[in-house]
Simulated assay, not measured.
Amino acid sequence: MSNVIVVGCGRVGSQLANMLSDNGSNVCVIDRSADAFANLGRNFNGSTLQGVGFDEDTLVKAGVDDCDVVAAVTQLDNTNLMVAEVASRLFGVPHVIARLYNPDHERAYMQLGIDYVCGTSLVAEDVFSKVVSGHGAHIDTFGEFEVLRFSLDLSSREGKRTIRVGELERDHDIRIIAFERGDGSASSIPNKESVLYQGDSVLACVRHELIPMFSKYIQE
């Protein structure tokens, strides 16, 4: 289970927070306005904190010292940039993601090495995919694909502790590149008949937008 701080509780932030909460993450949402938390709805299982997202004391209260991911998704690029800088440089949060409104600022984000999502639609889904791919030991991004290394979780298969590579690839439109047995006894480049077991270490190429559906196979 991961600990995530979401800064900004507008349309994008509230949607993202609910998606992460439903996915089993511990989520704390920060916003300047307490009224904004009404966007989360009654089924939100996380916590909320009124305050400024780049304020050190506020982040500490939100649990930044134990945090796996900070997502800065306010409507202000400068605020998101400051949150990202404080979270990564002062607190050493391993994965920081910022929303970017103005594409003219993209160069600055890239030079600072900040992971970001740029756009006006599907932003919550894009950030969610980045967070989930981080859980799966994200290795690299190639256009619309993410390369992930993760331990295989087959608990959703109702007692079935194995799955063929061809079945996994067909049902989820992914490509398994390589795997290693959970006990380290063997590794292989698979074919479609290769069998994967619970706990095997898997290297896979997954379409960015399909990661939320595939995340049930990623052992956290």
Rank of each mutant, 00 (worst) to 15 (best):
N3A: 12
V4F: 09
V4M: 09
V6P: 04
R11H: 09
V12R: 03
V12D: 03
M19E: 08
L20R: 07
L20G: 09
D22P: 03
N23R: 06
N23L: 06
S25Q: 11
D31F: 14
R32I: 04
S33W: 11
N43P: 01
N45Y: 10
S47W: 11
Q50V: 15
E56C: 05
D57L: 05
L59V: 05
L59S: 04
L59W: 06
L59T: 02
K61A: 11
K61V: 06
V64R: 00
D66W: 03
C67N: 06
V69D: 00
A71G: 00
L76K: 12
N78D: 09
N78Y: 08
T79A: 14
N80F: 09
L81W: 02
M82G: 06
M82A: 15
V83S: 07
V86N: 00
R89L: 06
V93D: 00
P94L: 01
P94Q: 01
H95G: 00
I97L: 05
N102Q: 13
P103R: 15
R107F: 15
A108W: 05
Y109H: 08
Q111M: 15
Q111F: 14
L112V: 03
L112S: 04
D115M: 11
V117E: 08
S121G: 09
L122V: 00
V123I: 15
V127M: 06
V127K: 01
F128N: 07
S129G: 11
S129R: 04
S129H: 06
S129K: 08
V131W: 06
V132G: 01
S133Y: 05
S133C: 13
G134P: 02
G134S: 09
H135V: 05
H138E: 03
D140T: 15
D140V: 14
F142I: 15
E146G: 00
E146L: 08
V147Y: 03
L148T: 05
R149I: 04
L152P: 05
D153T: 11
S155A: 13
S156K: 10
S156Y: 09
R157G: 11
E158P: 02
G159W: 09
V165L: 02
V165T: 07
V165N: 01
E169F: 07
H172K: 02
I174N: 05
I176V: 15
I177R: 06
A178S: 13
F179Q: 01
E180Q: 13
E180A: 14
G182R: 13
S185L: 09
A186S: 08
S188D: 10
I189N: 05
P190H: 02
E193A: 08
E193C: 05
Q198N: 15
G199Q: 12
V202G: 03
A204W: 02
A204R: 00
E209C: 04
P212G: 04
M213L: 12
K216Y: 01
I218C: 08
Q219M: 06
